[in-house]
Design a binder for these strands. Sequence first.
DNA 1: CGTACGATCTGCT
DNA 2: GCAGATCGTACGA
Length: 199
Amino acid sequence: MSRILHSSYYLHHDVVFLAKDLIGKTLCTRINSKLTCGVITETEAYAGEGDKASHAYGGRRTNRTEVMYSQGGVSYVYLCYGIHRLFNIVTNQQDVPHAILIRAIWPIEGVDEVLKRRGAAKLTNNLCVGPGKVTQALGIDLQHNNLPLNGKQIWLRDDGFKVKKADIHTGPRIGVDYAGLDAKLPYRFWTTEYELFKH
DNA sequence: CGTACGATCTGCT
DNA sequence: GCAGATCGTACGA
């Protein structure tokens, strides 16, 4: 059985819990009339105003970060290193700027289109491992910022994949050395049990 | 207005 | 292992 995640899902749990809970959920896009879906296999939580690694640290509120202050259940897409688009899920209530970066997926639908976008010949373990690769695979661009996550272009599904607790690993976030002690927080979650999602 | 830099990826060594 | 790509954002002048 498979169902779209309801908007309330994003509102009533802590962002760190959700980051872990999203492992095994399915992220779908229909962009340029192409349907592509992948099971989320790696995430990072960004815990708002108190988190030095977050764009919203210290309550920073600008054109770019404004969407993080929305009620949960919308997308936050931004440009990184001038090249890569990074896709985040905004969570929690209005004015609480929590977000979850999607760092990796295992593609399960529209795989041909994913391969085309990635410029690859076949599906390999690391085809969509890395946040820039995820957005490239799913066709997500800056114009997909601030979209509802139960909409026509982007949505999340629970396909009933059961990832065992012991198969979800935890560690510090990547590329946030500037965040001082917060760089050490165990806010990154991932699994490598791709076999669960095959066939 | 100027400028420094980043929640990265790739290809080459 | 490392350099280069590449540009919007943030912030100070």
